[in-house]
C-alpha cells in the first residue's frame, strides 16, 4: 500500500490530474441525470472549499466571509446576462475577475488586522455584502434572487454540464496544485507559522496575505458562476454567512493541511447534506456537532487520519 502510494506520488502533476479527470469522465458514462447533477454540485463545492483553504489552511487566516466572493461570482453571471444581455460564456469568464476585484477592496481592510480581528472583519464585511444585495432589490432581485440565467450554447443535458464542470474543476485544481508547490505558497505557509519571523526574513506579510485572499476569491468566483449556471438562478443566500461555513467545514472535515483534503471534504458535505436532509431538517445541527467533533478529536481531518495510518507526518501540507 505504501509503495503504491510512493509510486503515485512520483508521477508528474499533470499525469496525476489527468488520471483523476479520466476516472470522473468514465464514471459519468454510467450515471443517471440525478447523479450527474449531484456530482457536478459536489465538484463545484470542492472547488469552493479548495479556494477557501488556500487562505485558511495555507495562509492560516480563518475567513468567515468567503461567501461574498461566491455570491459575487454568481450574481455577476446573473446580472450581466439578465440585465445587460451579455452572452453567458462572457459573463462566466468575467465573474472570477469581479470576485477578485471585490476581494482587493474588502481584503485591503481585512488584512490590516491579524488573526482574530481578521476573522471578525471578514464576517462583518461578508454580512455587509449580504445586506447590500438584500436591500438593492431593484438591481439584485433582493430576497427573490434572479431567475432564468441562460444556458451556455453547448450545454443541452445534465451530462454536458457534468463534463463542462469536470473540465473547469480540473483546470482550476491543476492551477491550485501548481500554486501550492510554488515559492508563493511556501512563503505563505511561513507567514502562517510565524508572521513576525517572516517579516524578519524580508517578507511583506500583509501583501502576501492580500494576494492569497484575492486568489482565493477568484476561484470562489469561478465556483459561484458555475453554481449559478447549474441552477439557472442565484439567491441572496449565496452571500449569507451560512454559505461561508460550507467551505470552512469542508476543509476541516477533509483536512486543512493538505491539497486534496478540502476538495474531498467539500464534496462529501454536499453528499451528506443531500442524504441527511432527507431524514431531518436539522442539517446545521449535524454540521455543528461534526465541527466540534473534528476540532476536538481530529483537527487534521480525514486526510490527517489517512496520513497517520500511512505513518506520515500529520502536519505536512505540501501536495
Amino acid at each position: 500500500m505504501r509503495q503504491l502510494w510512493q509510486r503515485w506520488q512520483a508521477l508528474p502533476a499533470v499525469l496525476q490530474t489527468l488520471v483523476f479527470a479520466l476516472v470522473f469522465a468514465l464514471l459519468g458514462l454510467g450515471m443517471t441525470d440525478f447523479q450527474l447533477s449531484l456530482v457536478s454540485e459536489m465538484l463545484i463545492a470542492a472547488l469552493f472549499a479548495l479556494s477557501l483553504n488556500l487562505i485558511m489552511g495555507y495562509g492560516g487566516m480563518v475567513h468567515f466571509g468567503h461567501a461574498a466572493f461566491y455570491g459575487l461570482g454568481g450574481y455577476t453571471v446573473a446580472i450581466l446576462t439578465l440585465r445587460y444581455g451579455v452572452p453567458t460564456w462572457l459573463a462566466m469568464g468575467l465573474a472570477p475577475f469581479v470576485a477578485a476585484l471585490g476581494a482587493v477592496i474588502i481584503g485591503w481592510f481585512c488584512v490590516r488586522r491579524v488573526r482574530l480581528y481578521f476573522s471578525i472583519l471578514t464576517l462583518a464585511f461578508g454580512q455587509l455584502l449580504y445586506t447590500v444585495v438584500f436591500q438593492a432589490a431593484d438591481f439584485t432581485g433582493g430576497d427573490n434572487g434572479l431567475l432564468g440565467i441562460p444556458k451556455l450554447p453547448f450545454i443541452n443535458s445534465e451530462a454536458d454540464f457534468y463534463y463542462f464542470t469536470l473540465v473547469v474543476f480540473f483546470v482550476c485544481f491543476f492551477v491550485i496544485r501548481l500554486l501550492v508547490n510554488s515559492p508563493f505558497v511556501l512563503v505563505l505557509r511561513a507567514t502562517r507559522e510565524n508572521a513576525e519571523r517572516a517579516q524578519f526574513v524580508g517578507v511583506n506579510v500583509r501583501r502576501h496575505q492580500l494576494i492569497v485572499f484575492v486568489i482565493g476569491a477568484f476561484f470562489a468566483g469561478v465556483s459561484g458562476a458555475m453554481i449559478a449556471e447549474h441552477n439557472s438562478l442565484v439567491a441572496v443566500d449565496m452571500f449569507f454567512w451560512a454559505t461561508s461555513s460550507e467551505p470552512i467545514l469542508g476543509s476541516l472535515l477533509g483536512g486543512m493541511y493538505s491539497l486534496v483534503g478540502p476538495a474531498i471534504g467539500g464534496a462529501l458535505l454536499i453528499y451528506l447534506e443531500v442524504t441527511i436532509t432527507r431524514f431531518t431538517l436539522y442539517w446545521p445541527l449535524v454540521l455543528g456537532i461534526l465541527t466540534v467533533f473534528i476540532v476536538l478529536v481530529a483537527p487534521s481531518g480525514l486526510v490527517g487520519l489517512v496520513r497517520r495510518w500511512l505513518g506520515q507526518s500529520v502536519a505536512e501540507d505540501s501536495a
Partner: peptide, 12 residues
C-alpha cells in the same frame, strides 16, 4: 526565496 525576490513566483 524571499531574499532573492522570488516570494511572488506563483507557478514554478
Amino acid at each position: 526565496l524571499s531574499y532573492e525576490n522570488k516570494a511572488l513566483h506563483f507557478f514554478r
